[in-house]
Computed example of a mutant assay.
Amino acid sequence: MSASQTFDPWSPEFVAYPYDAYRELRAGPPVSWFEPTNQWLVPRHEDVNALLRDRRLGRTYLHVATHEEMGRPPDPEYLAPFWHLNRTGMLDLEPPDHTRLRRLVSSAFTPRRVNALRPTVERLAGDLVSAFVAKGGGDLIADVAEPLPVTVIAELLGVPVEDRPLLRPWSADICGMYELNPSREVADKAVRACVEFSDYLRALARLRSREPQDDLITALAQVDGLTEDELIGTCALLLNAGHEATVNVTGNGWWSLFRNPDELARLRADHGLLDTAVEELMRYDTPLQLFERWVLEDITVHGVDIPRGSEVALLFGSANHDPAVFADPERLDLSRRDNPHISFGAGIHYCLGAPLARIELVASFGALLRQAPGLRLVREPEWKAGFVIRGLKDLTIEV
């Protein structure tokens, strides 16, 4: 039950197009063992969806057992700042801590607050695209895809304009730890970013406690029962999760459109397709390819026994191309209505920022379609090395 030989997440060729390997995985056993990362790979939509909701699995196991009891090594001391920041955000917590923290954060990160951001998002997207068009194009990722969500999150949190250039490098360095088997160099950069970002957020949160503003950090600082560490972990999570995926949906999405010129022509002719187009682009070339879960008690998946203490790798990109769920999954169909893609997860860890991400994506794609109706690709892009958080290095465009 070993994984297909074509599943090679460190191969540039695989990262550039993993979907052939996924097809092989789905044609094989429902779960397969992948020795290089000591994980069980789960490639089919039905199983990924079910296991995301299965409370016998968790993002952590530390609420029920120690590392030793789960047969895992202790955390290296040098990673302590990374794990401290990571484990104070809700993504790596399980009930009851997750339930309490998500409820508290949701009381400040409300639908009303998110919807109130829509005019700001649309203005920012329009301004970025105007500047991009005025200079005749450039790198769509650096000039539009990256600045928009970082600026939106900074506006939401209340990060002063002069400090905003710090955010993207911190986020990129921290997110390096979410790749498979990260190196010590990657870990050291992530730890340094965690320390610097935590110190910055702590100082800003204390300032907002003394001098309240109309921003999310102030709102979180006023939430009764939310500790300072939890506030910091929440803000870090909102930055990391709140823009990495949006950046990559934008880059991967436009690259998908350029590779499918008939669909791009449909979208140019009918901007009313934008909402379904954004959902389809998230499905077609998924930004988060893999999400991990720990097995908290022995489970059996399609006759395969997976013991407590194991780790499963839920393959979002494969699930989103499963022909059992999506008709003609290899085809980009911007008007696809039946589209239960799993790009935002499922269950209790479903992405809290999904509504904001959709607002950002519709705004940026819409602004580009309106202001640069003839934008064209200059050269084929290269992919970054990461597989888990998968995106392009750049996307050079002329308008």
Score class of each variant (00 low, 15 high):
T37W: 07
N248S: 11
P95W: 10
T151Q: 15
H98I: 01
N49W: 14
R210T: 11
G138D: 01
D338A: 11
S106T: 08
I306S: 06
T120C: 14
A145I: 14
R208W: 13
D8S: 14
Q213Y: 09
N248G: 10
A145V: 05
V150P: 09
N86R: 06
F7R: 04
E263F: 15
D75Q: 05
D229Q: 08
V304I: 09
E185W: 05
E24L: 06
N248C: 12
P119G: 06
L237N: 04
V304P: 02
L167V: 11
L334G: 06
N86F: 04
V301F: 05
T250Y: 05
M282Y: 00
R53F: 13
L314I: 03
M1F: 09
T300P: 09
A346T: 03
S11F: 01
T234S: 12
H349E: 00
A27I: 03
L180P: 02
D127V: 12
R55P: 01
E24S: 03
W255C: 08
L117H: 10
L156T: 10
G353Y: 00
L238Q: 01
A245S: 11
A190E: 03
H341I: 00
T60Q: 07
P81W: 00
V152L: 01
L216R: 06
G251R: 03
R336P: 00
A172L: 13
C351Y: 01
L220W: 07
V325F: 10
S256M: 01
V152C: 11
A187G: 08
T151E: 07
H321Q: 15
A241G: 00
E280Q: 01
L290W: 06
L93G: 12
E263V: 06
P329Y: 02
S335L: 07
D214C: 01
P381S: 02
F109Q: 02
D224C: 12
L207W: 10
G233Y: 11
P12M: 14
P9V: 12
P74C: 04
V15M: 11
L392V: 09
L57A: 01
A108V: 14
D262H: 07
S11M: 13
W294E: 08
F132C: 05
